[in-house]
Structures are given as C-alpha cells and as structure tokens.
C-alpha cells in the first residue's frame, strides 16, 4: 500500500499496465516530454520510450482514430483527451466507430481502446475546461463508462479497463486529482466494473453520486448526521455497466433518493437513475426522487460555485425528501 493522490494513482495504474504488457501504449497531446497537462503521465515516456508514450499532433479525431487502428491490429492503446471538453472532434470516432466495430463486424473486429479524459468543474476552467459529458457516451451502445472517486479506485478501475475486452471511456475527476489522497494497493490491483461501492452506510435516505461529487455527498452526509439523519452514500463507479441492483437495494432500505451529478439535469445520468427507481423501486419510495445537478446552462466561469452542486444543496434536497411523505 502507498499513500497517493488520485492523479498519482492514475499514473501508477498506467505504469503498472505498461509494465505488465508491452502492447499497452499511450497516445495524446503533451503526454510525453511534458508528462500531461495534469502530470498524469509524468515519467512514463522516460521509462517506456517515445514509441510507447506518443506525443501526437493536436487532433482528437486523429488520436482516437489511430488508437482504433492500433487496437484492431492487436495493441492495447490508451488514448488521452486533454480535457473532456475537447472530446467532440473525436465524437464521431468514438460513437460511430469505436463503439460499433465489434457489433457491425459480427464480432470479427473487436476494438478495445481506453479513452481517458479529465472531466468536471471546480478549477475555474469556464465553459471549455469544466464539462461533464458522460451522458453522451452512456447513451451509446457498445461503450463502457467508468468514473473513479478515490485513488484506489482510480488505479483499480483503470487496470480493469486496460484488460477489459470492450472500449472503455475512463473519466477522471480533475477537481479532486490532488485534493483527495488515500492508500492504494501496490502492483496489480483491479476493481470490477458494475459494482457500486457504499461509501457510507445509512438508513434514512440514499445519496447516489460518482466522481468528484462523492466527497461532496459525503460532506453532506456528515452534516446531516449532526442532526441524527442517517444518509447512505452510494458511489456508482461504473455508469455502464450500472450496478442496478445496488441502486435499487439501497432505496429499498431507505425509501428516499437524492441523485447528484455535475452535468446539466435535463437528460443527465440522474434521469436514468430516477427512471430506474420509478421502474424497480416505486413501492419502496416514500418521497419524490430529488436531483442535485448542474443547471441547464453552459458551464460558467465566474459563477461556477453557483452552478456546481455543493454539500449545502445536497443537504437541502435531503431535507426536502425527508419532509415529503
């Protein structure tokens, strides 16, 4: 075990994957000599060489498109998109190509690429360095979508992603890259997809969150505990595949649900969770489902603290849920 920040855990996960398998390689903008704009790939080019840690020209469609070609040929590329906000030029490659290769070839051409991208607000990044675009990818058949919230999960989910046979979108909560640290197992460490983590047990209501919103949800749960309200916090970890059983089970226990994410509310991932609860936990619900999310505006610069969910907003929603019914 080693105490690491979340971004260090990503780095160790990449290093471990590359040490395990010479077919694993990285490509992206500024990831080699510069070690990545967030230093996620620091030291890796030095250890593995410029042919395995490839600084590419500035083109996201080029990065993902060439990663797809490498994967078809049998390598295991990990593509970095510098900010999730810049993923759109590669959207066609991800949605039309990466997600569909196995299906459209009748299984002849599986295409295993891991696409890493830092996501989310809270770093004063304005419209184009703050977005949470996970819902677009969750909506596309053929992609797995994973978001860690702890250093141990960052490494464990990343290593699972590298060994997974399917394309994986791996979104890293950049706001807590350095503000969160924790014990991370050394060597090979894997966290399976499709298994949510109960980050805090509770009996009065369930808070569902992922990525950078997990520490915020825990902060709210702590505040509620001071008023003898027992909130359970469920960290989803993988959105596709989703641990539907864990979501339903938690609400069967508590009867109340607060869903938290940074992305805009309308058609956000929370809508799917709310629908799931309506379909499968309706008779356990004692109150309407609450959503605490980014607003349906572009991500702002000066007003990002107004936009972003915080512990106080989660608390308000929790209390509203407890008052209702």
């Amino acid at each position: 075990m080693t105490e690491l920040t979340l971004v260090q855990a990503v780095n160790r996960g990449l290093q471990e994957a590359m040490r395990q398998d010479p077919d694993v390689l990285l490509l992206g903008e500024d990831i080699g000599v510069n070690g990545g704009v967030f230093r996620a790939t620091e030291g890796l080019q030095k250890e593995f060489g410029a042919e395995r840690v490839i600084d590419t020209p500035l083109s996201e469609t080029g990065i993902v498109g060439s990663a797809i070609g490498m994967a078809l040929y049998g390598l295991k590329p990990i593509a970095e998109i510098q900010f999730q906000d810049f993923i759109y030029p590669a959207f066609d490659q991800i949605v039309s190509e990466l997600a569909k290769f196995r299906y459209r070839s009748g299984g002849q051409y599986p295409c295993h690429v891991v696409v890493r991208a830092p996501y989310g607000g809270g770093i004063k990044g304005g419209l184009y360095h703050s977005q949470s675009t996970e819902a677009y990818f969750c909506h596309t058949a053929g992609l797995k979508v994973v978001i860690p919230s702890t250093p141990a999960d960052a490494k464990g989910l990343l290593l699972t992603a590298v060994h997974d046979p399917d394309p994986v979108m791996f979104f890293e909560p950049k706001r807590i890259y350095r503000s969160v640290s924790g014990e991370v197992p050394d060597g090979d460490h894997r966290v399976p997809f499709g298994e949510a983590r109960v980050a805090r047990e509770g009996t009065d209501l369930s808070i569902f969150a992922y990525g950078a919103m997990v520490p915020t949800a825990l902060e709210a749960a702590e505040a509620l505990a001071r008023d003898q309200i027992s909130a359970e916090v469920v960290d989803l970890r993988s959105l596709v595949p989703l641990d539907e059983r864990a979501v339903v089970a938690s609400v069967e226990k508590t009867g109340r649900a607060v869903i938290v994410h940074e992305a805009a509310r309308f058609c956000g991932f929370g809508a799917e969770l709310a629908a799931l609860l309506a379909e499968r936990a309706f008779y356990s619900l004692k109150a309407p489902v609450q959503r605490v999310t980014g607003y349906d505006t572009p991500f702002p610069y000066a007003l990002e603290n107004v936009y972003l969910p915080n512990a106080a907003r989660i608390e308000l929603a929790a209390r509203a849920s407890l008052r209702a019914g």
Binding site: G62, V64, G65, M70, L72, E97, R104, S105, Y109
Partner: peptide, 28 residues
Amino acid sequence: AFRAQNYVSVSSPIGTQITHAVGAAMAM
C-alpha cells in the same frame, strides 16, 4: 468485413477509416 482477408469492417461515415489505417500502420 472479411477478417480472413484482412478487409476491415466498413462504416458509412465518410473518411473515418483513414485514421484507422494510420493507427494500424503505427502498430505494424
């Protein structure tokens, strides 16, 4: 798509296979 003939799966969007050919060549 004819895997045995190294004839890679075709898509409808125009030009997307061009970067794949480059990536596979990098793998080669």
